[in-house]
């Protein structure tokens, strides 16, 4: 348990002392990231980096072992017509599919992430959430994506949310914990910032914007606020926390804007799959199409890329 001991730095901080967010300033700053001109070689490198950071995701009620196996095949063979591509960081599935994914991925060094804690609503007793987390880890999940109890958070019961994250953290053992704030339900950027601080102090390895089931999901402003929280937390404690925007990032261009923002907010140290992920299902193919366009000069069609 030594690993968890190190990660659990804290106790619940005084959230009233968390800096307030200047909403207009954040909007303007994030708009600025979209005006950077990224030219050819840098663009290709950025696209390859995006690929390596993708958590290829399927989280649907209609998921079957067959579909998950197919997704894993896609993760391993992104586009064999272009040799030398990096593989995605992880495959993200429901707990019942962890075993299937683990087996399908074999020794390919692609991680298995599992959502847990009554994803996506988080409306279940703690006991069940802990049990679900343990099951996912026992099945072989390398990473757990938990959701916070937004209801409790919104009614100000920060202690409850903090304890819950800390308890799940413990149940994860050696598995990495990503904490989903579901920013679309938090309402304001101030709350996003507060929830980020709370989650990091409770032991999150990653903070993640959204489940992908609620609109709005990841946006540039929300992600910027979370990155700033990570930066300040790092200055305060010396511990790096990862970031995962998820939901709604489906174009390569937008993904590059996110990387620009990451580079200019947290710096180069965070620019690896160990500290930054994209939760997405359709982003990979768009990136592949752009890479192919860069290689051939010809705009591509989705018809020539495997769906999953």
């Amino acid at each position: 348990m030594s690993v968890t001991a190190i990660r659990e730095t804290g106790h619940l901080p005084d959230l009233s002392r968390v800096p307030l967010v200047d909403e207009v300033g954040v909007e303007e700053r994030s708009a600025r990231f979209q005006t950077r001109s990224i030219k050819k070689e840098s663009k290709v490198e950025a696209l390859r980096m995006v690929l390596s950071m993708i958590d290829l995701t399927t989280l649907e009620g209609q998921d079957t072992p067959g579909k998950v196996q197919q997704l894993c095949q896609k993760a391993i063979h992104l586009h064999d017509a272009m040799p030398g591509l990096p593989h995605v960081a992880a495959v993200c599935v429901y707990p019942t599919m962890v075993g299937v994914a683990k087996k399908a991925l074999g020794k390919n060094n692609i991680k298995v992430a599992s959502v847990a804690t009554a994803f996506p609503s988080g409306m279940a007793p703690r006991q069940i959430k802990l049990e679900e987390t343990r099951i996912a880890v026992d099945e072989g999940a390398d990473e757990i994506d938990m959701v916070i109890s937004r209801g409790a958070f919104l009614q100000g019961d920060y202690g409850f949310v903090f304890d819950e994250i800390a308890a799940i953290r413990e149940a994860c053992g050696d598995a990495h914990l990503k904490v989903i704030l579901e920013t679309g339900e938090l309402g304001t950027l101030d709350r996003v910032r507060r929830a980020s601080v709370l989650a990091m102090h409770a032991g999150a390895d990653f903070i993640k914007t959204s489940t992908g089931k609620i609109q709005p999901a990841a946006t540039l402003p929300v992600t910027l606020v979370m990155l700033q929280a990570i930066r300040d937390y790092f200055y305060e404690t010396g511990r790096m926390v990862g970031m995962k925007p998820a939901g709604g990032i489906s174009s390569a261009k937008l993904a590059i804007h996110y990387l620009v923002m990451l580079r200019e907010t947290l710096g180069a140290a965070w620019m690896t799959p160990a500290w930054y992920r994209f939760g997405a299902s359709s982003l990979a193919n768009d990136v592949l199409m752009q890479l192919r366009k860069q290689a051939t000069g010809i705009y591509q069609s989705a018809d020539y890329f495997s769906k999953d």
Binding site: I298, Y299, Q300, S301, A302, D303, Y304
Partner: peptide, 8 residues
Amino acid sequence: GQFASHMD
């Protein structure tokens, strides 16, 4: 050239 070559 673009009109003619676009794969989609």
